[in-house]
């Protein structure tokens, strides 16, 4: 079994066998990060370029560590302003980078579809590290790994996803991944943050958190971009926290062994109370360490499919 693709752009492209392979490989890679020498030579001589058009610390660091633990050379290129502002087109930027003989380009961009655009025009393997409101496949995979580890399976779980689904590339990838395993997915947000037509994917939409939480196995909280409150998606943070914040009382509506997840960084007291975020149900830090393993698996598996 191998990944028969050049790029990882979205979980909706992957079939279940491919996701299984990635999760299984990631599981084996977790051990590497616990060694004293946290490094194996698998990608020695390969070049990984982190091309981030949007600020990110977590995802970039996670990919950087993943590459380094596989002995690849990792370079970070951050371009917070859009490249067109500088008079260089996106394609030109990417071609320039590829001319440096990169093997992997990890791309994050505020515009949806940019990784697809680059993947089409470049030889390098492209991994989407988050594009607009579209997808964040490595986050989706690490969430699957974290759930699978805790629950032993992904099948038939009731998963509640709470928060900004509209701009939620994490939510999109989680949904696509979980649906492939037959999870029962419930989305909770104010109607202003629920994208049109998402119920066609086979998920249940709620406006009230309490009603969704009943018997939940997993609660995934999404990060709220605080600047969005100015665009009238909801009146105030205070009201949002009241209606959609996860506290101990609400968590008690879910199953006793329910997991609490968050892609980070957390807005404490908004999406979740500190008590819950730091509580026994929380696997938020496990998500972070699983993130490195998943990204190592992606780099490793993609480098395998390239020879022909």
């Amino acid at each position: 079994m191998e990944l028969k693709r050049k790029d990882i752009l979205s979980l909706s492209d992957l079939d279940r066998e491919e996701i299984d392979l990635i999760l299984q490989t990631a599981d084996s890679f977790k051990e590497v990060s616990t060694r004293e020498i946290k490094k194996v030579p698998a990608l020695r001589g390969k070049t990984v370029i982190n091309l981030f058009f949007e600020p990110s610390t977590r995802t970039r660091t996670s990919f950087e560590l993943a590459g380094k633990r596989l002995s690849a050379d990792v370079i970070n290129i951050s371009s917070t302003g859009s490249s067109t502002v500088k008079g260089e087109s996106l394609l030109d930027t990417a071609r320039n980078i590829e001319a440096m003989h990169s093997d992997f380009i990890i791309v994050r961009h505020a515009s949806s579809g940019v990784p697809q655009f680059l993947a089409k025009s470049l030889q390098s393997a492209v991994i989407n590290a988050g594009d607009g409101a579209h997808a964040h496949p490595s986050q989706g995979l690490l969430d699957l790994l974290t759930i699978k580890e805790a629950k032993g399976t992904l099948e038939g779980l009731k998963v509640v996803i709470v928060g900004d689904i509209l701009h939620g590339r994490v939510a999109h990838s989680d949904i696509h991944g979980l649906l492939k395993y037959g999870a029962d997915i419930h989305l909770v947000a104010p109607p202003t943050l629920i994208p049109i037509g998402i119920e066609l994917w086979g998920v249940t939409v709620h406006y009230h958190l309490d009603e969704a939480l009943h018997d939940a196995d997993v609660v995934i909280l999404l990060r709220l971009q605080l600047e969005r409150q100015n665009t009238a998606y909801f009146p105030t943070l205070r009201e949002y926290a009241k209606l959609y914040g996860l506290d101990r009382r609400r968590l008690s509506l879910a199953k006793e062994d329910a997991l609490v997840m968050h892609p980070g960084p957390i807005n404490r007291g908004v999406e979740v109370t500190s008590e819950v975020a730091d509580g026994l149900s929380s696997v938020i830090l496990k998500q972070v360490s699983n993130g490195i393993a998943v990204r190592m698996a992606l780099l490793f598996l993609l480098s395998g499919g390239k020879n022909d």
Partner: peptide, 15 residues
């Protein structure tokens, strides 16, 4: 256009 396609592609929809 705002609809399932814009949601799927993560693009801002025009209602």
């Amino acid at each position: 256009f705002e609809g399932e396609v814009s949601t799927r592609l993560g693009l801002k929809g025009i209602p």
